[in-house]
Design a binder for these strands. Structure first.
Length: 589
DNA sequence: GCCGTTTTCGGCCCGACTGTTTTCAGTCG
């Protein structure tokens, strides 16, 4: 079984155990074990072989055995039994907001309910309201939860959420009553998909802020409206929370709601070890009970915490960028002063992998070069599809070589355009050979090599050796491995492929790897870049733009690169035009 | 189920909100 599948399986076991009423800490152990597996820094098979899997933080004796069984046989008796003991309907019910494992268990045990339909009927007949601990309101909430669960449960692309979030943030900051405002949550951590939006505002006058927030024209429903918190839902199902706090608590709320949960747990443990207690309302001396009332009335144990950096400093840590707060090893790195200086959008000098009208893009070479210059980029690589991608109007050798000439012509003109590099997105065919041979590709400045067809039906081994063959191919020019897994977020999983082996092969053959910044792709995934960086494989952030507007995707890609912990030095297209030109020339043979 | 510069056993982050209750369990982030 693939590593990702094993992680999913552990996560599922956690969920199932929750429904059995198992110790919540055991549940969390499975969930954090899944996380540990997802962000493993070494090859799983090597760890198993060398008997070192148990040394990974979060994976102990029991999980080691289960992971080995899943990896080597794809089976786990413990899981099969557990799975069989719990009806599918109960798992599905977890999607109903406010209806958690304990309540689900109760309706199952007391009323024998096993499916969503039975639950709905029991709500409507009044049987749910009669259960001890339940009431009329509970039944109503379950019913509306069932009706809305598809919209509520949906995740959204980071890029789509950004277009909702930024105008709201701007609107909040313009309000007279607002001192400070930020977006928190997984959006601020630049996760590739976002569940809902969290806004944190510092203000001494919450009412007008809440009023503005809940009164926005694109709000379809106000789901909560309290003293410090309001929740709304927009068209399309995206939900947003607004929290208004006093200015001296802003940093704590912002940090808390930025998360991640695992990061917060580690921060609090660290605070406890220093005799302090950390929460979204502040930092307090441990054991000192709140004298009365709300937590935000309690005096803080430390004064002068104005920015998040001050908070980290109290815990003797360097500032940890939001992107890195996933509860992995960021606290250790911050303690040792080893955090990377993350790449910024302004560091980019150019980009690669863009399409024009010649294949399936919407703009001309000139349009693209001009738009790139308008964004402050010094160069832009074109990589239209090759002939095998006939569905995308891929170029044959003649058309491609014509384009190469045309690019040289445009480059010789003076003006308002970024320098064009001639490339091609060459298809990796089913057998791992490339769609164009060396006689064509050696006339290019570079090529992107990507899989576009025959994605399913191949085993992990077959796909891996197919792609490695392409990585090793002699093209006579620099190769960039394009979207290495082919995933489309929220739509389809990537194909089965051993990313670690691809990285090794790339390192051995001087091949670069793309961070495809198309919001649906974000491929290669941020979780793999540390291995690539350690192997010395540069990252190329590319928008895979099919129009001038798509060049903006680069911003999305920079966020993903930051999440991956990459520095400007590790991103190829932060190099100046001169250095890039030199690099491309050196790669020619 | 994991983990150890208080611990190999006994902990494991913290607070608000909701709906149900007369003091709290469950859920959520």
């Amino acid at each position: 079984m693939e590593v990702r599948e094993i992680a999913d399986r552990l996560e599922e076991i956690g969920t199932l155990l929750e429904l059995t009423g198992e110790n919540p800490f055991k549940v969390r152990a499975y969930q954090s074990g899944a996380r540990a597996l997802e962000s493993l820094e070494e090859d799983l098979d090597v760890l198993i072989e060398e008997d070192r899997l148990g040394e990974v933080k979060g994976i102990g004796k029991a999980l080691t055995e289960k992971i080995i069984s899943l990896r080597q046989t794809g089976k786990l008796e413990f899981y099969d039994k557990l799975r069989k003991s719990i009806p599918d309907g109960l798992v599905e019910m977890l999607e109903i907001p406010g209806f958690g494992p304990k309540k689900i268990r109760k309706v199952h045990e007391e009323l024998g309910i096993e499916t969503m339909e039975e639950l709905k009927a029991a709500c409507e007949s009044g049987r749910i309201a009669e259960l001890p601990g339940f009431g009329k309101k509970s039944a109503e909430n379950i019913l509306s939860g069932i009706a809305n669960r598809i919209a509520y449960g949906k995740r959204h692309l980071w890029w789509d959420v950004r277009s909702v979030a930024l105008p709201i943030l701007e609107g909040l900051r313009e309000l007279e009553a607002v001192d400070r405002a930020e977006v928190a949550g997984s959006f601020r951590r630049s996760m590739e998909t976002v569940g809902d939006l969290d806004f944190i505002v510092a203000s001494s006058k919450p009412e007008p802020v809440m009023k503005w927030f809940t009164g926005q024209s694109n709000v379809v429903e106000v789901t909560a409206r309290g003293e410090t918190k309001s929740s709304v839902r927009f068209e399309g199902g995206l939900q947003a929370d607004l929290r208004v706090v006093p200015d001296d608590r802003f940093v704590f709320a912002l940090h808390h709601f930025t998360g991640s949960k695992d990061h917060n747990v580690k921060m609090r443990q660290r605070a406890l070890a220093r005799g302090l207690s950390l929460s979204e309302w502040g930092i307090f001396n441990k054991g000192e009970e709140p004298e009365s009332g709300k937590a935000y009335d309690r005096p803080l144990a430390r004064k002068g915490i104005k920015e998040e950096a001050d908070l980290f400093k109290v815990l003797e840590l360097d500032f940890i960028a939001p992107e890195m707060r996933e509860g992995l090893d960021e606290l250790e790195l911050a303690e040792e002063g080893q955090l990377p200086r993350l790449v910024q959008f302004e560091d980019l000098q150019g980009t690669f992998h863009n399409h024009t009208k010649a294949s399936d893009g919407h703009n001309t070479l000139e349009d693209m070069a001009r738009a790139a210059a308008g964004m402050g980029l010094a160069y832009i690589g074109i990589a239209d599809h090759s002939k095998a991608s006939f569905q995308a109007n891929g170029l044959d050798a003649d058309r491609l070589l014509e384009q190469v000439e045309r690019i040289a012509e445009i480059n010789s003109q003076d003006g308002d355009k970024a320098r064009l590099f001639a490339g091609c997105e060459v298809d990796i065919l089913k057998d791992g050979t490339l769609d164009f041979g060396r006689e064509v590709t050696s006339k290019l400045d570079y090529c992107v090599i990507s899989v576009h067809a025959s994605m399913s039906g191949l085993s992990e081994e077959e796909m891996t050796s197919r792609m490695i063959r392409a990585i090793e191919a002699d093209t006579g020019c620099l190769k960039i491995l394009g979207h290495p897994t082919g995933r489309l977020l929220l739509r389809r999983e990537g194909y089965a492929v051993n990313i670690r082996k691809l990285i090794e092969a790339a390192a051995a053959n001087g091949v670069l790897i793309e961070l495809n910044a198309n919001p649906w792709r974000m491929d290669m995934d941020w979780r793999h870049w540390r291995q690539a960086a350690e192997a010395g494989v540069p990252c190329v952030i590319t928008p895979d733009a099919h129009s001038v507007e798509n060049l903006e995707y680069l911003r999305c890609g920079v966020q993903a690169a930051r999440k991956a912990g990459l520095t400007a030095e590790q991103v190829f297209n932060t190099l100046s035009l001169d250095r890039i030109t030199e690099y491309l020339n050196n790669a020619k043979s």
